[in-house]
Nucleic acid binder design. Structure first.
Length: 308
DNA sequence: AAATCGGGCAACCGCGCGCAG
DNA sequence: CCTGCGCGCGGTTGCCCGATT
């Protein structure tokens, strides 16, 4: 059997919140804070489920929330982080002060995913759709991994430059295997950067460490996953600090230095990887940016025109 | 002017995780 | 160690409203 419901659904109001309910919830939270959500409805005089109250507060009533449209910088950051994290909306939202996971998720589903598709990028894999179609096309005729020169027991990457005949789908499999490792590290690091969380001694790196204002400090860093969005960002102006109007929330993200900062971040991740014995895997993967976006093709990054 | 359609968004649902007893 | 509970998350639903026919 599943878990019992958190509240008596028969006596709980559902649907849109009224101004009166908002006022009650706001009055309660401003006086008592947001402690035990299950007791909030009763204490605040609301006929709502505690979960509903929490959702209403975090997505709408919470102070310092932004209600205006997403900016170009925010869009780019969402796409960048989605490429690294997938649909970990809460982690992505943590890097966008004043935005909620619901905001980001809705914006992605209604706007950004379509935008990417229109530009020929698969919003799930962040790779050119043409490449994916080609991969699907090779599925039926692709030889087993052992025949392709790779171990059949693992997805150890082969430097694409050293294996030009590698089938695209095989690339995809390895890409995801390695990317998943990267994602897990990014997630761990972002978690450690969450408000109130201490940096793990096992992962001394913190995402915010790479958000220095001085973007030039990272110029030497190789451009990897995020590089394809850089052209538009650079064209849109120099380094510009992301509006951090709420110093108590997640740290403001320096979008102007974001790409280079993110690259430096990944570089540091790679250093960390060495300790885990996967540095060679990552190094091989990063050796060729085309590995991510089928570079060299017509779908090169500058063609995305993201800033338009 | 009315009906229909589609996009956007707020809210709900179910699940997993962490923690306290 | 086990169990129950609360919280937070991601996926999904359904309503509202503007655009189109």
């Amino acid at each position: 059997m599943g878990r019992p419901p958190c509240c008596d659904k028969a006596n709980v109001k559902k649907g849109p919140w009224t101004a009166e309910e908002d006022a009650k919830l706001l009055a309660y939270t401003s006086n008592h804070g947001t402690g035990n959500w299950t007791s909030v409805p009763q204490r605040a005089g609301l006929k709502r489920c505690g979960k509903s109250c929490r959702l209403r507060y975090t997505n709408y009533l919470r102070p310092n929330l932004k209600h205006e449209n997403f900016t170009q910088e925010e869009e780019e950051l969402i796409v960048t982080l989605h490429a690294m994290l997938g649909s970990r909306w809460s982690l992505i939202a943590n890097q966008l002060p004043g935005r909620t996971d619901n905001d980001v998720k809705n914006y992605w589903n209604t706007k950004l995913s379509k935008k990417l598709r229109q530009r020929g990028i698969d919003p799930i894999t962040h790779r050119p759709i043409a490449d994916l179609m080609q991969s699907i096309g090779t599925l039926a005729i692709r030889p087993p991994p052992s025949a392709a020169g790779a171990s059949s027991s693992s997805y150890l990457p082969v430097n694409p430059a050293a294996a030009p005949g590698l089938q695209p789908l095989h690339d995809d499999v390895k890409y995801h295997a390695v990317l998943n490792q990267q994602q897990q590290q990014v997630i761990t690091l972002l978690d450690a950067d969450a408000p109130g969380a201490a940096a793990s001694p096992d992962h001394p790196l913190k995402w915010s460490d790479f958000l220095a204002d001085d973007a030039a400090a990272f110029e030497a860093a190789p451009q990897v996953v995020l590089g394809q969005y850089q052209d538009a960002a650079v064209a849109g102006g120099g380094a510009h600090a992301y509006g951090d109007t709420d110093s108590t929330a997640a740290d403001g993200v320096g979008v102007g230095g974001e790409d280079s900062a993110a690259s430096a971040f990944i570089d540091a991740m790679l250093d960390s990887d060495k300790k885990m014995g996967v540095d060679q895997l990552i190094a091989d993967l990063l050796a060729d940016p085309a590995y991510y976006y089928g570079g060299g093709s017509s779908s090169s990054t500058s063609d995305l025109g993201w800033g338009c």
